[in-house]
Amino acid sequence: MPCPICEKDTDKTFRPFCSKRCADVDLGRWLNESYAVPSTDPEDMEQALSEAAQAAPKIH
């Protein structure tokens, strides 16, 4: 199975990655929320907009 980051052969120490570097790249993508499943559900969009509006600082 190839490394999902760079396509090199995997190393059993870092499986499914080939190195610590690729494992760290993947972790960074998770932490900055680069991995996401887009939603087309209108209810999800309305809830997200509502939550964003509530979280935004009020400017007077």
Rank of each mutant, 00 (worst) to 15 (best):
A23D: 02
F14I: 09
M45A: 15
L27D: 15
D9R: 03
N32R: 14
A52M: 04
A52F: 05
C3K: 05
A55T: 01
M1E: 03
C18F: 05
D26Q: 07
A48W: 02
V37L: 15
V37F: 13
D44W: 00
T40P: 06
A36W: 03
F14N: 08
P38E: 14
E43T: 13
C22M: 07
K12W: 10
L49Y: 15
F17E: 03
T40Y: 15
M1I: 15
V25T: 11
A23K: 09
A53R: 13
S19T: 10
V37M: 14
A36K: 09
P16H: 15
C22R: 08
P57H: 02
P38Y: 12
C6N: 12
H60S: 13
A56P: 03
Q54E: 13
N32S: 04
P38D: 10
P2I: 02
F17H: 14
E46N: 06
C18W: 02
C6M: 14
P38C: 13
A23W: 05
R21N: 11
S39H: 02
E51L: 06
E33R: 14
R21V: 08
L27C: 15
T13L: 14
A55Y: 11
A52R: 00
A36F: 04
D44A: 07
S34W: 09
A48Q: 08
K20R: 12
K20S: 13
I5F: 07
D9K: 07
W30S: 06
L49M: 10
K58Y: 08
S50N: 13
S39I: 10
A52W: 05
K8D: 10
G28F: 12
Q54R: 07
S50E: 11
I5E: 13
A55M: 05
E51R: 00
I59E: 02
A55P: 02
E43Y: 11
S19G: 09
P16Y: 04
A56D: 08
Q47H: 05
